[in-house]
Simulated scan of single mutants.
Amino acid sequence: MTINDIPALNATLNGLATILISIGFIFIKRGKILAHRRTMISACVVSAIFLVGYLTHKFLKGMAAGAGEAVHTKFGGTGAIALVYYVMLISHIILAIAIAYLVPRTFFFAIKGDIVSHKRWAKFTFPIWYYVSVTGVLVYFFLYVWWPSQPVA
C-alpha cells in the first residue's frame, strides 16, 4: 500500500459507513434496538478508522511535499461542475466538523440510557452524518475518478 492508495481506502470506509448508517436506521425503525446499537457502533468505528486514514494521508502528503507546501488535492474540473464540487466540498467540511461533536454526543445519550435525549439528538445527527459520509465518497470520485487534476497513470 502506498500513499496513493489511501484515498480509495477512505472512500470505501465512507461508503461502508453510509451502508451501516442506513441499516442502523432501518433497524431502529423496525424496533430492533440491539441490532441498531451494534450497527451504529460499527458505523462509528468505521468512521473513526476513516478519520485516522484521512489524517494519515494529509500528514504523509505534507511530509512528501515539504515545509510550506499545500497538501490538498487539486480539483481538475472547470466551469459549472467546479461550482458544484466546491459547494459540496465546503458543506461537507463544515458538516464533518459538526459530526465530530454530534456523533459522540448522540452516542453518549444512548450509552447513558437517556433515550429521549438520544432520539432528539439523533434526528439531527443522522441526516448530517449520512450527508457527510455520502459526500465523502463523492469528493473522492470528483477528485480521483471523474475530474482528476493530473492524468491517472
Rank of each mutant, 00 (worst) to 15 (best):
F59E: 12
I90C: 07
T78Q: 11
T78G: 07
H72G: 08
G66V: 10
A82R: 15
Y54L: 08
L60H: 09
A48W: 03
V46W: 04
A48R: 02
A64S: 15
L51C: 09
A67F: 15
C44K: 07
A48D: 04
L60P: 06
T73R: 00
I81T: 13
V84H: 09
I41P: 01
S42K: 04
H72E: 13
Y86K: 13
S47H: 03
Y85W: 07
A43Q: 03
L60F: 09
I49D: 02
L83A: 14
V46Y: 02
I90L: 10
F75T: 06
G76I: 02
K58V: 13
G53M: 09
E69L: 02
M63L: 14
G79T: 06
I49W: 04
T56K: 08
V84Q: 04
V84A: 11
T73S: 10
T73W: 01
K74R: 13
A64W: 07
L55Q: 09
A82P: 01
K61G: 00
V87I: 15
I49T: 14
A67M: 13
M88F: 08
V84G: 02
V46E: 00
A64K: 14
Y54V: 08
K61I: 07
K61N: 14
L83S: 11
V52Y: 10
G53C: 08
T78L: 05
G68E: 12
G77Q: 06
K61W: 03
E69Y: 04
L51K: 01
V84Y: 10
L83G: 04
A67I: 12
K58G: 05
I81L: 12
V84I: 15
A65I: 10
K61M: 15
V46D: 03
G77P: 04
Y85E: 03
G76V: 01
A64I: 06
F75P: 03
G79D: 06
M88N: 09
V87K: 10
Y86V: 05
K58M: 14
Y54G: 03
L83M: 08
V45H: 07
Y54Q: 08
M40Q: 12
A43I: 00
T73N: 07
I49F: 05
S47N: 05
G53E: 04
I49N: 05
C44V: 11
S42C: 09
G68Y: 13
I81Y: 06
V46I: 14
Y54D: 04
Y85C: 03
L51A: 11
K74F: 06
G68R: 07
T78I: 13
F59A: 15
L60E: 13
L51S: 08
G66S: 06
A80F: 13
T56P: 05
K58F: 11
L55T: 12
L83V: 15
A82M: 12
Y86I: 03
C44T: 15
Y54N: 04
T56W: 13
H57K: 02
V71W: 05
K58E: 11
S42L: 11
A67V: 13
H57W: 11
F50W: 05
M40T: 06
L83F: 14
H72Q: 12
A82K: 14
